[in-house]
Design a protein around this nucleic acid. Structure first.
Lengths: 374, 374
DNA sequence: CCCTCCTTGGAAAACGATATACCTACGTCG
DNA sequence: CGACGTAGGTATATCGTTTTCCAAGGAGGG
């Protein structure tokens, strides 16, 4: 056992062409024992077969008889072996990791759980497939973001990336194409683009429903506190809102904010309420902003929903906990995350698992909306 | 080309020491050109030096004269080359990634932002150092968690891991030691342990302050809705609470909950308020639970803080947005995340950057506490 | 002038897994 | 009875780095 130069004795013993001592000699003796994890050659040694046989077995390449196969599998089990990700990646290219880059300042990430929910959904699918999620949160500058993607690609750290926050005139698609890094976008791209994307069935129906709900309650003057205008969905929702409002003969003022902070939402709310003929209902781009808006209104002595109706967006668990419980446009964020993960893996040539349906957005009516006061 | 049975004919034909045709012939000619990223040998070729020279330059190994050094650097720049993470990792060096495994069910992650805030802090330090964060969210079972760590280690995907949620009788330390995977714990280990940990200066002062605050307002009967009892910090805080209460002659009932959900918090609140001689103030293990508790109290017709005082824990941004604004024990979660990241990198032999101070917990008094009604 | 050291730089051996070329029995068929 | 598949494996080149050595040549000392 101790000095098995194996083969050599049994295998190609009588080989006519000497072919040189083979520098890879070391590969053969897996003097494991103490430190270091087991390698494929340890498994081979234990099973009494060659390294390549082991490889064929674990990768289902066929050409190995059943009894041998079983011996190998047993050895794998006994040694608790699993292939080194680095070696596999180096050889083949599959990293079994996918990347995600967020350009939000870190503290914003905490106040808007949107991103976190997406990650949950993504992980829900990725984890069972033994894929890892490599997260990069870069500061606000676009440059840092581009560098992050470039590193991910050049160092071959991930097989593909998931993009969120679709932007108008988004440059990431071209960048990634240039880098040869497969990607899937969550949301709607700003223009026709070969990058696959996942989105809910009727992305705008939720906002339309919300306007209908408010109109039905008797509201005539709405305000919409929009997210930053470089977001694709901001523009989509705005359009829907304007159309719906026009269709029902409502007035709607749009209040864009520079970012998703509570402060910005509060300021926009203040401004809207200071208008001549102030709105009786305000819609917000997300739930945190809606809650901040409710507070801003309260500071002006307005009570929600008696004096002002408020509608959020996303339906995060939080919305059901505040007082009044928030009426909001629910979005299947977890479903979107799951779909994106599966779509990307399929894209990578993995098993073509069918992508689960994403639920369409829908209005969740709770307590923050009511008929307007006289 | 078509039939290159390698060297044998061309290679070291006339070489005095035969040493064998050198299978690595290819390494020399980096026929780059079209597809594929540049490799170190392309850089070497462009700079007119050997691969080893390039490696030495980029790793600051010295032994290379200045002019050569510059030529190499220029070539690196021109080719936009960066080393393949896979190859570097395979060679045994660092992966430049650190791992994190969370055992929470994914939807819990979204309702309790605690974890997210830590991640922000961690990334804040990791990103500038070009370290990646590999996230794994596994389902509830301990087994899946162990497998996740094992994979991380065996596949050499990360250089080390950051642990959160210190448990009583935590088995992860032994596991990681066995795996040879460096780790840093955020929080207090359940017993003396060689695994380094980071924590705030006076971890318990916050809770003590809270009790003092409530006692000062005139409360005599407290309740504490604790997190699950297998958490180390749960036991710590309980002890502090009991001591402080006893020291001030207050009564304190402890209400452990099985998990951090809003439902559990609501149920525990119900139960506490149904006691004979119900508490006039309740402390919660985190802010989400406190908000859920406020709602539960409201459903019983109690108003906060008039009929019941409520204290949360963590001071998430959310707490300042709800009504009444939440009095809570602030914790420097971002600081903890940053400290953990730096500590781990230092542990890995990286630059021994000094770890920034973590702010001690402190009570943030807002509107959810007041003197008890007669 | 010879020998030693030091500075620069190169050749090649790992690292661990995969794929391809190849090799040996063993049947089978013409 | 010999050529030929074919099943079942084995040997090894290869992926892109890092890291030993090792060599050549110049400097400096005796």
């Amino acid at each position: 056992m101790s000095h098995e130069h194996e083969g050599s004795g049994t295998g190609a013993r009588g080989s006519p062409r000497v072919r040189c001592p083979a520098p890879g000699r070391n590969t053969v003796m897996g003097t494991r024992g103490s430190g270091g994890r087991p390698t494929i050659s340890d498994v081979a040694a234990l099973a009494g077969v060659s390294v390549s046989a082991v490889s064929k077995v674990v990768n289902n390449r066929g050409g190995i008889a059943e009894p041998t196969r079983r011996r190998v599998l047993d050895a794998v089990d006994k040694l608790q072996w699993s292939p080194s990700a680095a070696a596999v990646a180096l050889r083949g290219a599959r990293t079994r990791a996918i990347g995600m880059v967020s350009r939000r300042p870190p503290d914003l990430l905490t106040s808007d759980p949107h991103f976190t929910v997406l990650i949950s959904g993504i992980e829900r699918e990725l984890a069972p497939m033994d894929y890892g999620l490599l997260l990069h949160i870069v500061g606000g500058q676009e440059d840092a973001e581009r560098r992050a993607y470039r590193r991910l690609a050049e160092e071959r750290r991930v097989d593909g990336v998931i993009l969120t926050e679709s932007l108008v005139r988004d440059t990431r698609f071209d960048l990634l194409r240039g880098l040869g890094l497969p990607a899937v976008l969550i949301g709607t791209p700003w223009r026709e683009d070969p990058v696959p994307s996942v989105r809910a069935p009727h992305p705008d129906r939720g906002v339309a429903e919300a306007v209908g709900h408010l109109a039905g309650l008797g509201h005539r003057r709405l305000a919409y506190v929009l997210g930053p205008e470089d977001r694709v969905h901001t523009n989509f929702r705005r359009r829907v809102l304007e159309e719906e409002a026009r269709g029902r003969g409502l007035s709607a003022v749009l209040m864009p904010v520079p970012d998703f902070t509570a402060e910005a939402a509060a300021a926009a709310t203040e401004e809207a309420l200071s208008l001549a003929g102030p709105p009786t209902a305000i819609l917000y781009a997300n739930d945190m902003m809606a809650i901040a808006g409710i507070n801003a209104a309260r500071r002006r002595g307005l009570e929600v929903p008696r004096d002002l109706s408020v509608v959020g967006h996303d339906d995060l668990p939080l919305g059901a906990l505040v007082q009044p419980r928030l009426t909001t446009v629910g979005q299947d964020l977890v479903g979107l995350g799951r779909a994106a993960a599966l779509r990307l893996v399929a894209e990578l040539g993995g098993t073509a698992a069918e992508v689960p349906a994403v639920a369409p957005p829908r209005l969740v009516v709770r307590e923050s909306t009511a008929a307007p006061g006289v």
